[in-house]
Structures are given as structure tokens and as C-alpha cells.
Design a protein around this nucleic acid. Sequence first.
DNA 1: GTCTATAAATAGATAGAC
DNA 2: GTCTATCTATTTATAGAC
Lengths: 203, 203
Amino acid sequence: MSELLDTKQKILDAARVLFAAHGFDGTSVRDIANTAEVNVASVNYHFHSKEKLFFSVIDDCYAQSEAEIELLASKYVKLEELSVAIFRYFILNEDLVLNHFKMLTSTHGDLYFSKLVGVDKHSGPPGHQAIVRAIQKEVAGNLSQEDLHWAVTTIYSHIGHTSIINSCFLKHRPEVPFSKMEDLEKFLRRLVNAILIELKSKA
Amino acid sequence: MSELLDTKQKILDAARVLFAAHGFDGTSVRDIANTAEVNVASVNYHFHSKEKLFFSVIDDCYAQSEAEIELLASKYVKLEELSVAIFRYFILNEDLVLNHFKMLTSTHGDLYFSKLVGVDKHSGPPGHQAIVRAIQKEVAGNLSQEDLHWAVTTIYSHIGHTSIINSCFLKHRPEVPFSKMEDLEKFLRRLVNAILIELKSKA
DNA sequence: GTCTATAAATAGATAGAC
DNA sequence: GTCTATCTATTTATAGAC
């Protein structure tokens, strides 16, 4: 690997961690360069500006997670197991979720987020489509667009929200009741099954 | 009202909006002073530091929302209606939710968040206890601590997450399917009922 | 309590040597 | 492509007059 790619990747790796931990405005280019053990000037040389580096980080996270979650999806047929697998993936790759979420909640983040989630294609964030397919496979009867949308956004919201709460809070507070990973997973499974029962009762 | 309280409150009001929109690091004391139409130096005079102002904003939001949600809770007995009422409150007071959430996802935010949600007292964030009471009232049979915790965290997570997504994204993207408030409320009602059915089936 | 002025530190970005 | 040095702007915080 050339030195060019090496430096670029070191910057991307350091930036992903620091942006996730301290946000865009809370992270300086100097922090990133120091963590990446590269020269300060190389950041702007390779990424032109701090903002473009941030977007590169998001793109990097998105491309990586989309590929990895599609791989996950191919291994699970049951919605319950797929949901837990995606949840575990989010927990193990918390930088990814936190960066996406902090970008969304930052100024004008919704503009960039629109591009990411592919509103026009209705493809949604990473893992979204895999959950859609699993629901359609599991519930034999006719599902309206509304049924499907309700189920997938409810499950996906729960996975995303719980990942964030765990990464930022629960994992530092083991004394909170039902905050262990096994409890969080059990609760997710319970929600998935409650939703499946509701869908099947209508079909 | 004295000039002192007037200035303090003007600063708190401006800071709440700006911190929610741009985050702690993305907001300067000068921005706040300009928006509040007060002198720059008065911010540190009244709040000692930017960080202490931030915590004051959070305390302010918390105290206000806790009182107002308790008032809401006294007006609704049905869990479904209470949940929708809390959701609407969060939508109408988005600064509050966004500030709490950004604080949580900021560096060391979990320390302060612990204080807010009252881990020791297990009281949870604003509206949490009201939902607990509504569930207990609605489901006649014996509910274990686990049943109750699952139901309340699932409902509350959904309300919180949907509020954030709506404030930051959906309300700017009306073309996204099922993103209108009436759809979001319908989906919330459907989740609440699915959870109640699950709880009653076990009781 | 409010103001101006300023201290002291840090930010993003770039010029120019190598 | 990498480095040092630096420019310009902005930040938080405070000192001191009123």
C-alpha cells in the first residue's frame, strides 16, 4: 500500500473515532492529525477542508456498513435473528451509528442525511432493506405498504435508538436495571415477536 | 420582574434554541449574547462559564418539561392517548428533546445524563413515570418488573426517537412516505396497542 | 449589572521549502 | 506528499471604567 493511501486511511480512521466521540465542532483538525500521527497540513492536503473530511468519514462508514450488513442479512432468514444481528453490529461499530446520528442532528445535517438514506429510492439506512425483506418473507399474508412501513420503522428505530443509548449511557451504567446486552437483546426479540403477532393477526 | 432575571432568562432562552440547533461546540457565547440581545460579558457574569450555562439550560428544560408532562399525565388515563400526548409535547418542544439528546451524545454527557434521569431513584426522563403508571393501570393482571420495563422503555424509546427524527429530518422532507404527523401518531398508537396485547396475553 | 477593551488560547487554512 | 511556519479569524474569559 502506498504512503498516500496509508496517510488518507489513518486520517479517516482517527477522524471517525474523534467525530463520533466529540462531534464535528468538538474535534479539531489538529486533534485528528495528532491521533492519526500525521502532519497537520496533510489533512487539508488530502481532504481539502474539515467539512469535506467529515463527509468522507460518513461516506466511508456508510459504504462499509452497507456491505457488511448485507452480508449479515444473507446469513439469517428469521426476522428475530436478523434484528439481533444488526443490533449487535451497531453495538460493535458504535462510531458508525454515532457519526450518522450526530450528523443528522447537526445543522443542515438533514440535507446530507437525505442523500445517505436515499429518500428518492426509498432504500433507507443500512440494514433497513434487509429487515423489509425478512418481514415480507416471514409474514405470509398480504402486507400493505403501511403495514410494512410501520413494522420496519418501528423495529429499526428501536435498534438504532437502543444502540445509541447503550453506547452513550447504558454501557457506562451497569447498575441500571435491564441494561446488560442480554437484556437489551431479549427486549428487542420481544418487540419483534409482538410486531409479528400483530401483523399476522391482520393478515 | 427585575432586570437581572430578565437578562438571565433572555440568555437561557437564546441558549436553549442555539444549543439545540448547533450543539455545545457549534454555538459561541457571542452568538447567544447577540440572539438574546444582551452584552457579551453578561453571559459569563450570570453563568460563570459557557459550560455552566449549558448545564443551566438542561436543568431549565428538565424542570419545565417534567412539570408540564406531569400536568399532561393527569389529563389522560388511556396509555394510548397519554403516549400520543407526550409525543406531541416533544414535537412542540423540540429544543428540549434535542438538547437532552445532544447532551447525552456529547463527551461525558452520560455523567450529567445520569443525574437527570435519576438512575438511583429509577425515575427516568420526563414522562417516563407517567407511562409506567398508565401501563400498570391498563393491564389488570400481574406485571413483573421485566414486563413493565420492557413496555415502558419500548414505548418511550419510540416516542423519543421519532421526535428526534421528525425534528431533524422528516419535517423537512414531506415527500418521505408516512412522514406526516398523523401517520407518525397512527404508528405510535399501533405500537402501543401491540404492546398492550402482548402484555395482556401473558397476564 | 452593564459596558468596552483586551488578554490568551485555539481554530481552519495555506504558503513555500524540501 | 510531507514538513515548518504563519496568517487570519474566532474563541472563552476577564479586567476595569461607569
